[in-house]
Simulated scan of single mutants.
Amino acid sequence: MLNLVRGLLLVFTVFFATVFGKDLVKAKKEGTLENDNVVKASFIGLITDFFDTLGIGSFAPTVALSKALKLNIPDKNIPGTLNVAHTIPVIIEALIFTTVIKVDSLTLITMVGASVVGSYIGAGVISRMEEKKIQLIMGIALAITAILMLLGHPKINLMPIGGDAIGLTGIKLVLGVIGNFILGALMTAGVGLYAPCMALVYFLGMSPAVAFPIMMTSCAMLMPVASTKFIKEQAYAKKVSLCIAVFGSIGVLLAAYWVKSMPMELLKALVIVVIAYTSVTMLKAVYKANKVSEEVK
């Protein structure tokens, strides 16, 4: 069953790479390829996808570094650039982690499938919800999760939660599927799947390592389709996306080697840091949004 997942990922890779490659060749022939800074874009790809492989996420860091290094990507092209640029690195992440980390096939396929279905079916409902409220709830929930996980870390061991299972059965599997369905839907509201998926996996008693193939395969199944749409609409920065995709893939390979050889205690500490970081980011975004609203009034 895992080979079926990997096969689908390879099909998506070929499909996406063909569409992306044809568009780049066409742009070069027509002379419409942007004159962006290749070195800066390559550096951004290497750094952001290295940390994406650790579970930090790549979208927000890419936007921050692009603005800091003055790549000057038009705002209307930012969503498309983020998706197109990081699609191949994320697929590589999924292929690596479904190979090097043991995960139950049924658990992986059902949870990944639930996130994909959630991103489509749930989009209509979630997109109408106020993003600020969603971020506030998720930010608080992740903060509590990070604290509980810290207390449950083997070095502290004040609250024995989590586990070492590589799969779910019975009611836990049902909860995992429902949870990832909701997380897939929340992606349409701008809430990243990585940290919440880590928390979900941990509280259902699975090893934190199992979160990596689940969360990365979930995103890898979604991004090629969305990215292809952005390419057809010409709503992305072509040269920047190519540089990030190439050097981001190198960043993934470097980080994946580090993660797979990391002791479990250190990996658990990394997961706690990722969840805490995501919580702070969400709560900070809510605070800024409230501040702007007050200034407008």
Score class of each variant (00 low, 15 high):
residue 40 K to F: 04
residue 211 A to P: 01
residue 140 I to T: 02
residue 55 G to M: 02
residue 49 D to I: 09
residue 199 A to T: 06
residue 148 L to E: 03
residue 297 K to C: 06
residue 112 V to M: 07
residue 107 T to R: 05
residue 42 S to C: 09
residue 178 I to V: 15
residue 38 V to A: 14
residue 247 F to E: 00
residue 198 M to N: 10
residue 14 V to F: 12
residue 95 L to R: 09
residue 35 N to Q: 13
residue 254 L to H: 06
residue 285 A to D: 13
residue 53 T to V: 04
residue 237 A to S: 14
residue 240 V to G: 04
residue 75 D to L: 13
residue 127 S to D: 05
residue 259 V to Y: 08
residue 11 V to D: 00
residue 190 G to N: 01
residue 247 F to G: 02
residue 50 F to K: 05
residue 91 I to M: 08
residue 53 T to G: 11
residue 126 I to D: 04
residue 173 L to K: 04
residue 286 V to H: 04
residue 173 L to P: 03
residue 49 D to F: 10
residue 265 E to M: 14
residue 6 R to H: 07
residue 211 A to E: 11
residue 187 M to N: 05
residue 193 L to C: 07
residue 164 D to Y: 15
residue 268 K to V: 00
residue 219 C to V: 14
residue 272 I to L: 14
residue 157 N to L: 02
residue 173 L to I: 08
residue 24 L to D: 05
residue 290 N to R: 14
residue 70 K to G: 04
residue 192 G to P: 00
residue 17 A to K: 01
residue 161 I to H: 13
residue 215 M to S: 01
residue 53 T to D: 09
residue 83 N to H: 11
residue 79 P to G: 05
residue 63 V to I: 14
residue 27 A to P: 00
residue 209 A to R: 12
residue 131 E to M: 14
residue 101 I to Y: 03
residue 94 A to I: 03
residue 125 V to M: 13
residue 124 G to L: 04
residue 23 D to A: 01
residue 79 P to Y: 07
residue 122 G to W: 07
residue 150 L to M: 13
residue 137 I to R: 06
residue 248 G to C: 09
residue 46 L to R: 02
residue 99 T to Y: 11
residue 34 E to P: 00
residue 241 S to Y: 04
residue 116 V to M: 05
residue 240 V to A: 08
residue 246 V to K: 06
residue 254 L to K: 06
residue 179 G to L: 00
residue 95 L to I: 11
residue 292 V to P: 09
residue 180 N to I: 12
residue 235 A to W: 11
